[in-house]
Design a binder for these strands. Structure first.
Lengths: 212, 212
DNA sequence: AATATCTTGCACACCGATGTGCAAGATAAC
DNA sequence: GTTATCTTGCACATCGGTGTGCAAGATATT
């Protein structure tokens, strides 16, 4: 209906640099605060961004606006992060997806939060569709090739892999983990749900490290 | 300080039967509503119990009161459900825990919800301590016996098992699963995170079914 | 039938969060 | 240094949720 993008009004002068900076600061702060508490107030978000609540409204006219912008941002980062993960092998591909997602933990967790409940669920679902589609095709191929467990449907398996990976992401956020330890854990969780034993998972990961 | 239990005032006459019934109806309704949305209003809970908001206050003087009662109830059911699960074998014991928890999905999910965020986290943590302790000892023994994965600490492993089981519980709630399918899935998830391949998990479960 | 108990349906006060208006600073951009 | 932009700090209205008081109605218990 209305073009809510930046092209709304002809700016007599370009937007000030510090305003742009503050805008991203708000988004970063929102990611952190909403990760702690999905119902964090705009007050707390603004404070985390070293700004006033009133100033926040200068960038996002509504709480909904802010969250949508945040989700949009997260979706694009996630989508970007999984480009060219699909090598031929399904096991390695799953591990690689886990590794990439670990690099975007903050964003992934926010997205996951809003994917299950609240009025943003459909938006997030749509935003994450590419990731889910990719995982599903990989899983399908993996099952067909006998590389993954054979006892449940590809659809369910891909959801389970996603779910357990998120569980590990949550746990990792609780107990501080090193960069590599976290990636390793997420990869292992995905492969574990995919049907591999822990030795097979380890082997897959070291094999993968050899061929980046 | 104050004895908030039922012994507070000497009742001239016993509590009416329908009041008792309504009380449990409220708790059931709260479990359902809070499973959908952890911030469900007392209004919606009362409605789900076919009562007025005002009547709810006759049973629980505070939202906090209601939630604490709910959590207490859930904790006792869960604790009760895991009595005598620990046979000697760690793999079977983990599977059995999963199966038992599946029988209490509703309660387990509510507990899990309030275990991570909000002012009730410490209470829930304390209430779930027996379960966690049990799982931890089983995992420790399993690792020592070489029955479970050897690459991470018992503490972390038990948390991961717990997390992935909860993830499956969530997923199961999303896609309607039969009684047996759900139990199977939860058991498999636990065993998968514990390091078993899907064939080993299947074998463990069928073996377990033979010896109840 | 008499009575204590429970529920209902209003009334109200309170609180925190959201969103807006406006005037007075502060500061990039030109 | 001028100007347009951005931030601040108030004030205010609004909205939904919580908790209470009270009188009238309904119902279980005896």
């Amino acid at each position: 209906m209305t073009p809510t993008l930046s092209s709304a009004r002809p700016p007599a002068r370009a937007r000030r640099a510090d305003a742009e900076h503050n805008r991203t600061a708000i988004l970063e702060a929102a990611a952190v605060a909403l990760n702690r508490d999905p119902d964090a107030s705009l007050q707390s978000i603004a404070a985390e961004a070293h700004l006033t609540r009133r100033a926040l409204y200068g960038h996002f006219s509504t709480r909904e606006d802010l969250i949508i912008a945040l989700l949009w941002r997260g979706a694009s980062r996630i989508t970007l992060s999984i480009t060219a993960v699909d090598c031929g092998n399904s096991r390695m591909s799953i591990a690689r997806i886990g590794s990439r997602l670990w690099g975007e933990v903050e964003h992934v967790r926010v997205m996951a939060r809003f994917a299950v409940r609240g009025p943003f669920a459909p938006i997030v679902a749509e935003a994450l569709a590419p990731l889910r589609r990719l995982l599903l095709t990989i899983v399908k191929r993996g099952i067909a090739a006998g590389e993954l467990r054979q006892d449940i449907s590809p659809e369910l398996l891909s959801r389970l892999i996603e779910g357990s990976a998120l569980a590990v992401l949550d746990e990792a956020n609780r107990t501080p983990l090193g960069r590599d330890d976290g990636a390793r854990l997420v990869m292992q969780a995905g492969l574990a749900m995919a049907g591999l034993s822990w030795r097979e998972s380890e082997q897959t990961i070291t094999e993968m490290d050899r061929t980046p």
